[in-house]
Design a protein around this nucleic acid. Structure first.
Lengths: 333, 333
DNA sequence: ATGAAAGCGCTAACAG
DNA sequence: CTGTTAGCGCTTTCAT
């Protein structure tokens, strides 16, 4: 900027004003400065500007990972969420600082980019069993919006889908297809699968069916999850004619594995997934699944976070959930 | 920092030194300051620090989008690349500033985060037909590493796979399966598909087969691409017994569409994809595809960019390409 | 071992 | 309309 001031024969203050399109500066001068800046490919140093203005238009996005298992980021649901968040943020004129943090460091590392002034708020995808740490951040007034499940005593703003009714929807559909031995795939230690399980239980109960604990198998949201779950299920020797998986990734890998074991889908085993990622529409058989509106979720997360940053209240929301009937669980009922 | 200085009864200079673990400061004083900082959840303002130190550890990552078609970021290949870049960057201790830019603005907008000092280098995923603009940036000494195809007169550092041999590999495999009418799906206006097409042509030629232009269909890397291509192909009424698609996304949506049209894969039509995204291994039929090592690619992009930033030379590289034989094109030959 | 002071690149009173 | 000056939060000589 000093260079430009010298070349234009004015003070840096004038250059600053011109660059910011202040009406105070003479049009001729402004044009001269603007041309000069363009020809030098000069662009205001945002860091210095932020420092001076005490502002910032960068939002942190964190997708945690589990140190033990989840080395790489490959779950299509998470990836799609990331893409949608990028789109939503771009649309609002914010930059996205993306980072991955190990779940066991969430408590300390999550707020670092905020405390150090790099971002003005953080979006976290998933609770990862760190409800308490997230609550502490919210209590500290760190602007934070989390994708996940609503929990009791939740201080932080949470955006999620209606997991209980999602679980109910999926199970009711399977029951309507005449299935009675419905396996449940998902990690009950995580809030979202736990709520979906409640919906699953409720639906069974409504039909007078006892839930068989042998049909519930815990598995992480990983590609190996569906495969391992099927192996476990088969190993237990319990009969089952349907599977409700807590994510489409799990559903797809389970289907692949069932097929490898000679079970036809949906004839022998009907499968319902959760998420409705794009791939579900061209997977074979096309996946029947509980739709989570990812695009809307990303928009909501951004909107909530911006509200929080503005000091406005941002109550948690549960996005409506919807069953998308395709082929993997038999025809529409 | 001023607060801490006051509370600790020292100057900000000492606080700064203590926080940076300078050996110059008395151990007792340092501990007092460190504790104070921890209890206040204080963390150095990175913006100010960067300004003063004239440094920065943020890298820009850009995934362009085509204004006309590609509204949202859903291609699993791109998403996986993004995830891998995030992992590679995190591993090296760099932050990632992610942005989406319309292809028609690449020339001007790509360097903005660099010129404004927000990032010290940029990774661009895909050339998007903007070879010239990318060259100009490189000529301007903007540190930039691009995922794409090597082209004549390329000034920028490019990391890509060996597309010609990839195309050859895929086609040879199909030929070895006895297929002779091989459709090619991909946009020849883009450098990578164009190179893969050269490999395709070379393989056909080696077997004394004339390439039928009716078998080449242009389609963008979108979910609708494979479907539309199949419709076009069927509409042309030309017989075909195989498809080589320029991405797994295209291959999968093409397979879905073929199935909808009553064609069995691989019996009636053998299909080979390109990329080897994770989903290919649990798609049905499991996809035979040309593997692009995405993780290695991300590592290479980061390494190249860091070299460039250090002022070191960073020659372009072509990563080796490999055929992964699964089920969508028949048994292994 | 610590403090005073200057300055990184920018903007906003305040004068003129 | 434009220049002077102070200061955003930090680090680093240079003194002491």
């Amino acid at each position: 900027m000093a260079d430009i001031a010298r070349l234009a024969g004015v003070s840096t203050a004038t250059v600053s004003r011109a660059l910011n399109h202040s009406p105070l500066v003479n049009e001729e001068t402004r044009n001269r400065i603007l041309e000069l800046a363009a020809s030098l490919k000069y662009s205001i140093n945002i860091g210095a500007q932020n420092l001076r203005l005490r502002q910032n238009r960068t939002i942190g996005v964190v997708i945690p990972f589990d140190r033990k298992s989840h080395q790489h980021l490959t779950d299509p649901f998470l990836l799609t969420m990331l893409g949608s968040l990028a789109d939503a943020l771009t649309e609002q004129g914010f930059d996205m600082l993306f980072s991955r943090i190990a779940t066991d460091e969430l408590g300390t590392a999550l707020a670092a980019p905020f405390d150090s002034g790099r971002v003005i708020g953080v979006i976290v995808v998933g609770q990862w069993g760190r409800h308490q740490e997230l609550n502490e951040l919210a209590a500290r007034k760190v602007p934070i919006a989390v994708w996940g499940a609503q929990l009791p005593q939740q201080l932080y703003c949470c955006v999620g889908s209606d997991n209980v009714s999602g679980g109910r929807l999926a199970t009711e559909h399977l029951l309507a297809q005449g299935r009675r031995r419905i396996a449940f795939l998902g990690d009950l230690d995580l809030p979202e699968p736990a709520q979906r399980y409640r919906g699953y239980r409720a639906a069974l109960e409504r039909h007078g069916i006892d839930a068989d604990p042998q049909l519930q198998v815990s598995c992480p949201f990983l590609p190996s999850g569906g495969r391992d779950a099927v192996t476990t299920l088969l190993g237990r020797g319990v009969p089952f004619d349907a599977v409700f998986a807590c994510s489409d990734l799990l559903a797809m890998t389970a289907i692949d594995s069932l097929r490898a074991h000679g079970r036809r889908v949906p004839e022998d085993v009907a499968v319902v997934g959760y998420d409705d990622i794009e791939q579900s529409s061209y997977f074979h058989p096309r996946l029947t699944t509980v739709r989570q509106p990812i695009g809307a979720a990303a928009q909501a997360l951004v909107a909530k976070l911006l509200a929080l940053i503005d000091g406005a209240p941002a109550p948690s929301v549960e996005l409506p959930t919807e069953l998308v009937v395709r082929a993997s669980a038999g025809e529409a009922s």
